[in-house]
Design a protein around this nucleic acid. Structure first.
Lengths: 199, 199
DNA sequence: TACGCTCCCTACCGAGTGGTAGGTCCTATG
DNA sequence: CATAGGACCTACCACTCGGTAGGGAGCGTA
């Protein structure tokens, strides 16, 4: 019961973990933000790791949902890919937040990478590979080529998303908004040109 | 004096910070790795922040040195850009390590972003803008367009670098090596096509 | 010999960490 | 009305954190 408190816990913890990282946030801080004591939190998730894991899982699930939606959004594979990346690049607050968190996960995951065969993003990437391969079937891209290509765009989008706040402070909000526009434009160009003009 | 110990301190701390993040490493852990006590470390850098700052500064300086070298490596602006990104993408251990650390900095910097006008990467980015603009002068790219473009490639390269270890665990080392080859190939194609085929 | 300086140590501090033990209140069910 | 269990509390545990105080060994200089 009280799934409400549980949700709020996840929401706020997600935000804090995204901003400060796993070691940068104490469960006491999270709890107090929700209006609980540390032990109130531990009542729902009996360790810090469990809480963190639940958050990553939730994000991963949502990501795959969005990916499935993108698959059904259009008939044209190229357009599908465009929409997919456009959705990823959307500078929503929660989107930026989650990208930050996943980026941190990717960095921290390095240590425990041994168990990464079953990494939560595996199905996400597998689907990405097939999406890319669908765009230009005549070329018969290998899985490696497709992933290399899809990962470049993924990196471009994610890196830009987590940079915007810093860039804004550096160059001013207006300048960065201009960049955001150019960014998407450029991205779509890369998607279409990159895949249609041979290896 | 004893610049030797100081260097070893910086080297090892850089490695640990890159792997586990600022809050993930204690100065005691760093010191013991070097063969010192915590207080031996504090003799050289009288706070954790100072140590971390020195590391970021050192990386930043080296990056700009490499950038300057790239500028003098070739006469052709496009080729210059190619070499520049190729150098960034080199999967050296130290290169990967430093990319990880800088990525973490970028994530953590969000909180203290207010003071980012003088961020250590500012000159690096400014130079990048002019490098991109040099490639196709006839088009007269705006600064925003140039940065959007340069940043996409920057993100693609950096994101891929920090991902390799996880990807290897997921898809196997052989597959990822294949991707690395395709990655550079693809990157160069993006550099040339992206800039020469109109907005 | 005396002095001061660099390098590095042991001992210690206050604050904060994740987690446990045990209890109280509230509500739903019998 | 009794009881069981979920939700949440206070109090506390053992431990780690970054940082300070102070001292000692080895050195160069006077």
């Amino acid at each position: 019961m009280h799934a409400d408190t549980r949700q709020r816990l996840l929401d706020i913890a997600e935000q804090l973990f995204a901003e400060r990282g796993f070691y940068g946030v104490s469960i006491a801080a999270i709890a107090s933000e929700v209006g609980l004591t540390k032990q109130g939190l531990l009542h729902y998730f009996n360790s810090k790791e469990k809480l963190y894991g639940a958050i990553v899982q939730r994000i991963s699930d949502d990501f795959q949902d969005h990916q499935r939606e993108a698959l059904q959004a259009s008939e044209d594979p190229a357009e599908r890919l465009e929409k997919f990346y456009a959705a990823l690049a959307e500078p929503t607050e929660t989107n930026v937040q989650r990208t930050r968190l996943l980026m941190r996960e990717l960095l921290d995951n390095n240590e425990r990478a041994a168990k990464a065969e079953n990494w939560y993003l595996r199905p996400f990437l597998d689907r990405l590979i097939s999406m890319v391969k669908d765009v230009n079937k005549s070329e018969k891209l290998s899985d490696a080529e497709a992933l290399a290509y899809g990962y470049q765009l993924l990196g471009a989008v994610n890196y830009f998303l987590i940079s915007t706040s810093t860039l804004k402070a550096m160059y001013g909000a207006k300048f960065i908004e201009a960049i955001s526009t150019d960014f998407i434009k450029n991205l779509n160009r890369l998607i279409n040109q990159g895949l249609n003009s041979g290896t």
